[in-house]
Structures are given as structure tokens and as C-alpha cells.
């Protein structure tokens, strides 16, 4: 599962759940998609050059990574982004369902209206798995 947060000057952050991630070809940015309908604060805050954090959690093992960087571009999702979100949701339902999370519960997290795509240029990666190595930077 993935959560994205955009920093706020106040000290808080705008955050929301992502609906998929696309790894870059070559040295391009990472792309993630989320629902602007479900996460309007995030949609308002997400803009080019804004500082961003993204966590990726494997729900059955708690293996967790946090990536930090800046947003390069923001745009409306297209058909490929919708397909990415659909595939992600299917896999999340399978993975969380196997852990006993009910389908009705998962559905509440999967708004797919007004999908937005955010391209992120990552500059740091941290291990955030609970345990003694939580917070350690992972070398590039």
C-alpha cells in the first residue's frame, strides 16, 4: 500500500492514498496516481517543485520504505493511469483480503474518480520497516 504526503509550511502535510505506481524508464521520474475526488487537500497541495514523501508498505510483512523528493509534474490521469489504478486495486483486494480485511472496507479506500498523476524526482530512500533499522537511509 502507498501513502503520499506533500509538505505544508505549517508543519502538517496534505496526504492521501495512492492507487498505483509506475517505475521510470531510464532516469525519468517515478509516477504515482491518486483520486483528487477522495483526497482534495492533496490535489490542491500537489504542485511542481513541492517537497513530497511516499511510503510503500507490504501489508503482510510490514516491510516499509519511504522515498523523498520533489514533484516534477502534475496532470490529469489518462486511460493508462486508470488501468494502472484498476490493476493496483485488484491486487490490493487480493493481498488485503488474504489477510482478512473485508472487501467492503477496502472499497472505501479506493475512490477512482478524478485520477491525477504526479511525477516525482526522488532524492532519498529510507528503510522504515519497524525495528532497529527504521529510519536508516538506503544508499543510492
Amino acid at each position: 500500500m502507498m501513502v503520499i504526503a506533500v509538505g505544508e509550511a505549517s508543519g502538517g502535510a496534505a496526504l492521501g492514498r495512492c492507487l498505483g505506481l509506475r517505475l521510470p524508464a531510464g532516469d525519468g521520474p517515478i509516477e504515482v496516481v491518486f483520486s483528487a475526488w477522495q483526497w482534495p487537500d492533496l490535489a490542491r497541495s500537489a504542485g511542481p517543485s513541492r517537497a513530497v514523501a511516499l511510503t510503500l508498505v507490504h501489508p503482510s510483512t510490514y516491510r516499509t520504505y519511504q522515498l523523498k523528493g520533489r514533484i516534477e509534474t502534475v496532470g490529469e490521469g489518462d486511460a493508462a493511469d486508470m488501468a494502472l489504478a484498476d490493476d493496483y486495486i485488484d491486487r490490493m483486494i487480493g493481498m488485503l483480503g488474504a489477510l482478512g480485511v473485508e472487501r467492503d472496507v477496502i472499497d472505501r479506500w479506493c475512490g477512482i474518480d478524478a485520477v491525477m498523476r504526479v511525477a516525482i524526482r526522488a532524492d532519498d530512500l529510507f528503510d522504515q520497516t519497524p525495528g532497529p533499522h527504521a529510519g536508516e537511509r538506503i544508499p543510492a
Binding site: 504526503a5 505544508e8 505549517s10 502538517g12 502535510a13 496526504l15 514523501a53 511510503t55 519511504q66
Partner: peptide, 16 residues
């Protein structure tokens, strides 16, 4: 639950 904060440069951090 998820907690998000930001440092002095506006760089966010996420924890569970």
C-alpha cells in the same frame, strides 16, 4: 493510522 509532518524546509515525513 498514518501521521504526516513537515520539517523547516517543508519536506514531509510519513510514519505509521
Amino acid at each position: 493510522s498514518v501521521i504526516a509532518t513537515s520539517d523547516g524546509d517543508g519536506r514531509p515525513n510519513i510514519s505509521y
